Amino acid sequence: MTAQPTLRPERPFFSSGPTCKPPGWSPDKLDIKSLGRSHRSKYAKGRLKYAIDLTRELLGVPDDYLVGIMPGSDTGALECAMWTMLGARPATIAAWESFGNVWIQDAVKQLKLPDLQVLDADYGEIPDLSQIPQENDVVFTWNGTTSGAKIPNTDWLAHDRTGITINDATSAVFAMEMDWAKLDATTFSWQKVLGGEAQHGMLILSPKAVERIESYNPSWPLPKLFRLKKGDKLNVSIFEGATINTPSMLATEDYIFALEWVKSIGGRQAMFDRADANAKIVKDWIEATPWLRNMVPDPAKQTNTGVCMVFQGDWIESLSAEDQAVVPKKIASKLEEMDIGYDFNGYRDAPPGLRIWCGGSLESEDISRLLPWIEWAYEELKAGNR
C-alpha cells in the first residue's frame, strides 16, 4: 500500500476554469473606486480601456488589430464572431472536444450554413486540418480545454488565405504563442489561464475581420449582444472601453490584477515557461505511472494547460464500464473532502479521467504535492474493491 502523504498543496486549486488565482491574490488588493459608479463614467471607462491596452501589450497583439471586451465569456465572444462573419462564403468548423462541438451545433442548427465542412475527431485526437480549403472561413479551437489536445502548429493556415480565421483560444492565450498574422478573430475569457472572474470575454479582430464585418450583413437577425456595427461601420467604441452592455467592474479589476501580475513576472513568456514546467511535472508522472496514460497520445499535440489523463491496466479493465467511470470521480471527491485538491475530475462529456490544470497561475510545488495524494487515493480505492 502507498503511504498517506504528509505534504499538502498550499493552494489546492486545480480547476480548468475558472482557474487558480495568481499567487498573492486577495480581494483587498483590488481597486474598487469604480464600484457603484456608471461603467460609462470617466474613471470606469478608463479602467476598461486600461484592461484592453494591457491585454494588447502582454499578448503582443499587432497595432492594427482591435481588442474589445465582450459579454458572455469566451462563448459570447466566439459566437459573436461566428454570427457576424460567417455565411459570406463556404465555412469549415474543426472540433475535437466539447466546446468545439458546440460551435458545430451553432453552424448546423442555428446559422444553418448551406456550404459547411465539418471536421471532427475523438477526444485526444485532432482532425486532418490540411483538408480545409484556404478559401473557406474556418472556426477552430487552438487548445482543447476538455481533451488536452492542442494544434501543434499553424502550417495548415496559409498567409494569403482568403477565408476568415476564427480562433477560440480561451485555454491557450498566456500559455502558448498566438500566430497573429494568421488569425482574424481570436477569443478568450478572463476565467481561464489568468484565473480571472467569469462572464467577460475578449474579442481580437484583424483588419481583414473588420473589413468582413463592415462589408457583410448576415441573413439572420443579430441579438443586441452581437451587434458590432453602427450603421455600416464597426462600432470602434466597443474596442475603446464602451462595452455593448454593462460590465462588472469588480470582475474587471480582478482581471487587471491578473494582467499586472503577469507583467510583474516578465510577461507572456514567463507564463509560457511556468505552464511548460507545470505540465512537464504532470506528464512525466503520467509516463511513470503504469495505471495512467495521457488522453492525447501524440506529444506534439499535448497541452501545457489542462492535462487530461485516463486510467488503464488490469484492475480498471476488470471493472464494468459503469464502475470504471466512477473511479476518477471517487478519487477527486475524496481529495476534495480532505482539502487536498479541488475540481480536477475530468470534464463531464469527456471520457472518464482526471484533468489537472497546469497554467501559469499555479505553483509547481502545489502540483508536485498533489500527485502523491492521487496515487494514495487510487491505491485506497483499489484495495477497497478487492
Rank of each mutant, 00 (worst) to 15 (best):
P9H: 06
L194T: 12
S264C: 03
V262S: 07
R40H: 15
L183F: 04
A185V: 07
K33I: 12
G144Y: 01
T92K: 04
S189A: 10
S41Y: 08
D74A: 09
L225D: 14
L234R: 00
V118F: 09
N245Q: 13
E197D: 13
G68Y: 04
T186P: 12
W103C: 15
W357Q: 14
K182Q: 10
G341Y: 03
M85S: 10
T289H: 01
E57T: 13
P247S: 08
H200D: 14
D343L: 01
T162E: 08
A95E: 01
G163Y: 00
I204C: 04
G384S: 10
M338P: 07
P133N: 02
Q324C: 00
E379T: 08
R161E: 10
G313V: 02
A94V: 02
K109F: 14
N101G: 11
S364P: 13
R293D: 04
K29P: 09
H39Y: 15
V108N: 12
P9Y: 07
G267E: 04
F14E: 02
M271V: 04
F226W: 06
R212E: 07
A300E: 09
G313C: 05
Q117T: 14
D184A: 06
H200A: 07
E322D: 09
A383C: 12
I374A: 07
W376M: 08
M178Q: 09
L111E: 01
A251H: 11
P207Y: 03
D160L: 00
V327W: 02
N294V: 01
P299S: 05
S130T: 15
D179Y: 03
W373S: 01
A44H: 12
G353V: 01
T303P: 09
G124W: 01
S364Y: 05
A158I: 06
A169R: 06
L59C: 08
L250N: 13
S364T: 09
A198W: 13
V139T: 09
G60I: 06
T75M: 13
S215G: 09
P247I: 08
P22G: 02
D323Q: 09
K233T: 13
W25S: 04
K112H: 06
L86C: 11
V193P: 07
S215I: 05
W220A: 05
E260L: 03
G266R: 10
L354N: 14
